[in-house]
């Protein structure tokens, strides 16, 4: 005798979802909201990463020489820096090179600026060996000393900025994890109640099934599938809404801010759909199990 018939379990689960329509909708809505919030945070973190990458060359510090520094002074400064601990190499960018770069980026406003009007100074781009915080801080300290001696006009340490953004990302992650935990607990609670209602509405039927000799798994599988279906529906809907809102609102809103890069949703679409469905289905199954655990133990 065959005892596993997927179609039977699926039909029973669908019937039960229909019978408790309001609670089903509530469960899908809450879990979907939870997934949308998860998606929102994930997109925020992902975009922070993308922008951090754009800073690129995070292991670099730029120092700007004094405007009136002579060729000898700049060469000597470069040599001094090269001898500092944790320095891999030092590349000099003359003020002429820097002006050309600047003109390329701001062709409309400064395209006709001449070398006589050049407001820039020479710079030295330092690449450091180790990203160890202490070593970078020591290098920064040494550079600050050179600055106080009047050899350097300005230090631009991208590491500090990157570190700040990275710290912000970690804060967002922490908030995200707490939000995730709270929302998942709420979702599981709602699903537990939906499945409990389904169990109550089928109490007589279940009683008869037990007397006739149905196994516990045969009785409980439709309820587990019910939880899975709630999770699946919530996952698919959350994905569609997140995609729609991201592409129509977020991308358009940030397109005006040229200094911020917004990631293309298509690049992360497969991860999102799989992630949403997986979280949805697992939450649904966990909710079902919690409501059934008392029953399974009797």
């Amino acid at each position: 005798m065959k005892s596993f018939r997927p179609l039977y379990f699926l039909i029973e689960a669908l019937k039960s979802l229909k019978r408790n329509g309001v609670m089903t909708l509530a469960s899908v809505a809450v879990l979907m909201s939870c997934l949308i919030v998860i998606g929102g945070f994930s997109l925020l973190v992902y975009n922070i990463d993308v922008n951090l990458e754009q800073f690129g060359e995070m292991n670099k510090i730029a120092v700007f020489c004094e405007f009136d520094a002579s060729e000898d002074e700049i060469t000597s400064l470069q040599k001094t820096i090269e001898e500092l601990d944790n320095v891999k190499d030092v590349v000099r960018h003359t003020k002429e090179e820097r002006l050309e770069e600047f003109k390329k980026d701001h062709v409309d406003a400064y395209g006709d600026i001449t070398s006589e009007e050049n407001p820039l100074s020479d710079s030295l781009e330092i690449t450091y060996k180790s990203t160890d915080t202490k070593k970078i801080e020591n290098l920064s300290y040494e550079l600050e000393k050179l600055k106080s001696e009047g050899q350097i006009r300005k230090i631009s340490n991208r590491y500090t900025l990157s570190k700040k953004i990275d710290n912000f990302k970690h804060t967002v992650m922490m908030i995200f994890i707490w939000f995730l935990a709270i929302l998942l607990v709420v979702s599981v609670f709602i699903i537990v109640n939906t499945i409990k209602l389904a169990l109550i509405s089928r109490k007589n039927e279940i009683g008869i099934m037990r007397y006739i000799g149905a196994t516990k798994w045969f009785i409980t599988l439709p309820f587990i599938i019910e939880g899975m279906l709630i999770g699946l529906a919530a996952g698919v809907l959350a994905f569609l809404i997140t995609k729609l809102v991201y592409n129509t609102v977020v991308v358009r809103a940030f397109n005006v801010a040229t200094f911020i890069s917004i990631a293309d949703f298509a690049r992360i679409e497969p991860t999102f759909i799989v992630g949403f469905i997986l979280i949805g289905v697992v939450t649904g199954v966990v909710g079902s199990f919690i409501s059934l655990v008392k029953y399974l133990n009797t």
Binding site: M1, E205, I208, I212, G213, F218
Partner: peptide
Amino acid sequence: RLLPNKTVYENVAFAMQIVGT
């Protein structure tokens, strides 16, 4: 203890369905 939403036939068949006949 019959299931009110099932016909006579379905009530009897149900007993067989749940044991996987």
